[in-house]
């Protein structure tokens, strides 16, 4: 198999693979297998896992609702300063998530620019709530979706949209029936990345939404807090997170992303 492939590529490839996989094996080796079942079915793990899955999925839904139109605007809309806009969209990628969390507090917190009005007019307060977790995860994960969908839109042939226009379709109908179906694989790939990022989100979540079991303690927060006092528990939590995410991603990949090429 490997005979025809140049070693100068194969060796770094194998080293890279080992670099990614060996730490995961480390988790497996160090896992407290004997007490695993008892820990696995504890209320703590169950709560955190349920919360993580719910929040990551809601955050992905939020990103889809806001991010797909944003990607469309970047790819198709004739907006001035598009380069700058695109750079701004990707800021959460490079921003340390903790800083993102502080920024969210400053805007959406109880005394934040927007948050104080939310509280005064609607009685809505996001910090320390599950909704806050969703907001924090969406903030960090949305660029993944936007970038993936924008790429797909740029690769799609705009002449189909012209064809739709000659048939009398409005831009909204064109977007819904022609553009969106043609970039569906890109949207799915983006949503999967977005979901995975949201599932692992830690810094922005703990800063903006705080940490309270059953309310805002997602798996990554539980792992971090457990790590300080009970490393075995942290390993169990990490394994669960790992297993669930690998399962979901592999399942989605076979059904959707693989076909997208």
């Amino acid at each position: 198999m490997i005979r025809d492939r140049p070693l100068v590529l194969v060796l770094p490839a194998l080293a890279g693979l080992a670099f990614l996989v060996v730490p995961l094996l480390g988790l497996l080796v160090r896992a407290p297998w004997a007490e695993l079942p008892a820990r696995l079915f504890s209320a703590e793990v169950g709560n955190a896992l349920r919360l993580s899955l719910v929040c990551a999925s809601l955050a992905t839904a939020l990103c889809l609702v806001l991010g797909v139109p944003l990607a469309w605007l970047l790819a198709r809309g004739d907006v001035p300063g598009r380069g700058l806009l695109r750079a701004l969209v990707t800021v959460p990628l490079v921003l340390p998530p903790v800083v993102g969390g502080v920024a969210l507090l400053l805007v959406l917190g109880r005394r934040g620019l927007v948050g104080q009005h939310l509280e005064a007019w609607f009685g809505v307060s996001l910090p320390f709530t599950t909704a806050g977790v969703v907001v924090a995860e969406a903030f960090v994960a949305m660029p993944f979706l936007v970038i993936a969908v924008e790429g797909a839109l740029r690769a799609a042939d705009p002449r189909y949209e012209e064809a739709a226009a000659t048939l009398g379709a409005s831009r909204w109908l064109t977007f819904r029936r022609v553009t969106l179906p043609s970039v569906a694989p890109g949207v799915v790939a983006g949503a999967v990345l977005c979901w995975a990022r949201a599932l692992g989100e830690f810094g922005a979540t703990i800063t903006f939404a705080g940490n309270f079991p059953g309310e805002t303690t997602t798996m990554p927060l539980a792992v971090y807090l457990a790590l300080e006092t009970d490393p075995d528990a942290a390993i169990v939590l990490s394994l669960v997170l790992l297993l669930v995410s690998v399962g979901v991603l592999a399942g989605l990949r076979d059904r959707w992303v693989g076909g997208a090429g």
Binding site: V102, L105, L106, G109, R110, R111, P127, F128, I206, T207, A209, G210, N211, F212, P213, E215, T216, Y224, L225, E228
Partner: peptide
């Protein structure tokens, strides 16, 4: 009846400072 259990005392203080709690 806490709303959040922070990972260190400085994080708690930040929440007070910002008026979030």
């Amino acid at each position: 009846r806490p709303d959040t259990l922070e990972q260190d005392v400085k994080a708690v203080l930040t929440k007070v400072r910002l008026g979030e709690v």
